[in-house]
Amino acid sequence: MRALLTASTPASVHLAHASAWAVFAAGAVLILSGAIGVVLLRNPVHSALMLVVTLFGVALEFIDQSADFLAAVQIIVYAGAVVILFLFVIMFLGVDRKERFKREPFRGQKPLAVILGLITLAEILILSRVGNWATGQHSVAGDLYGPGTNIQKLGQSIYTRYLLPFEMTSALLVIAVVATVVLARQQSRAPGELTKDEQTVLPGSDVEVAGR
């Protein structure tokens, strides 16, 4: 009996190990392919759909690190609400046509941007190689591995230690909703009247109003 137990435990541990690596690899592939798709695809609708792929990959990594609640919220809020909002704005405004690349305000901006991105990445990686990854005291704001489920511990932390920030986010959300309503409202004006912006833009401008 004891021999059976000692023989079976490493096998199950090995299986859990392998499955964690498999979930990590799948999430990494989803994240990287989605992110590259967001940057490279010309059509904004395709970019938004690739953003969904990346967000699913991040949710997978959350699950792999046993942040169950955050994974669910990631899917619901990001993939469910934010990307739908993006798609709604794209369809609503009809901006799903390709980017114009005829004018380059800064010559060589794109290679410079790629070089700058690579430098950013190299800096982050070098900095992280210099010291230890995570230093400091453990479990300052609350124990992650204690008894209870992940949601229970997270809720307890938010409603006790982080109560004031939590209440402030409610004020922030109300302000954001009011601001959006004010921003997106149609200004009522007389027909034929041009705004100051349109008056300056229309004659001989670089915006192709007459050509369309």
Partner: peptide
């Protein structure tokens, strides 16, 4: 890594 719930919050 730190066993801390603060990161998730």
């Amino acid at each position: 890594m730190l066993g801390d719930i603060g990161g998730q919050a």
